[in-house]
């Protein structure tokens, strides 16, 4: 038993485990911001009065949400980079990192859009009518009246999307990001198969530690920021 634990302890000095988690956090950070922006735009399209925009938004969500993330990530590298020869950076590692962010963004934006739309459904129709009645066109009404209330009503589903995004960031391995946790875990297991359970445990616990605060934060925010009616 003592031998097992010392072997595990040695793994921490042999491999940059914390660094690997840091890569996943960075992937999550950028993809979260970008998918929030793209998801908001998509949600605006879906609630807009213009039918073609509604249609385009719905088509995007239904295609991207129903495509496996692994396929999107593989396509980023094999389709966009290898085939179309589009690069996002000169440096190999940065290039793949950015492709992974783009892949995570376009996939999760579909979920963010739907989370925001569920938030829009918490805003009574009368709010939009009152906004229109004082002469606000669609976009200012959305920006000033609907979205601020919708976001507050969407904190919990947005939190769920963020949690999924953090865990899904491990699929960056499919976009050749070689420094993140899934890649490191596989490498560690290949070289230290005798402590395979310990290795699994390290990564499982690592993600649990990262995810729990997100859940706590979104729960407390959604009650604190709830719009009183």
């Amino acid at each position: 038993m003592g031998d097992y634990l010392s072997q595990i302890a040695e793994l921490f000095s042999q491999y940059d485990i914390v660094g690997a988690f840091w890569v996943n956090i960075q992937l999550t950070f950028w993809a979260a911001i970008l998918s929030l922006v793209l998801g908001t735009v998509l949600a605006l399209m879906r609630i807009s009065p213009i039918v073609s925009l509604q249609w385009a938004g719905a088509a995007y969500v239904n295609v991207l949400r129903n495509t496996p993330l692994t396929i999107i990530m593989t396509f980023m590298v094999l389709g966009i980079w290898t085939q179309l020869q589009i690069s996002l950076a000169q440096d190999f590692a940065t290039n793949f990192f950015r492709f992974a962010v783009v892949g995570l963004t376009i996939y999760h934006a579909a979920f963010v859009c739907e989370a925001i739309r569920s938030g829009v459904n918490t805003v009574p129709l009368g709010q939009a009518e009152a906004a229109r009645a004082i002469g606000l066109p669609f976009l200012p009404a959305a920006r000033l009246i609907i979205l601020p209330q919708a976001f507050r009503g969407a904190i919990a589903p947005l939190g769920n999307t963020l949690i999924a995004l953090l865990k899904n960031s491990t699929v960056a391995v499919a976009a050749s990001v070689s420094t993140e946790t899934a890649t490191l875990m596989r490498e560690m297991i290949e070289n230290n198969s005798s402590v395979i359970f310990g290795i699994f445990f390290i990564f499982a616990i690592g993600f649990v530690i990262l995810v729990i605060p997100i859940g706590l934060l979104t729960t407390s925010l959604s009650t604190r920021l709830a719009v009183r009616r």
Partner: peptide, 20 residues
Amino acid sequence: LARLRADVGMVFQAFNLFAH
């Protein structure tokens, strides 16, 4: 239409004050 609505005041049964 937005411009015209600005000239027409509306008071609703459910008040509809901006809740936030």
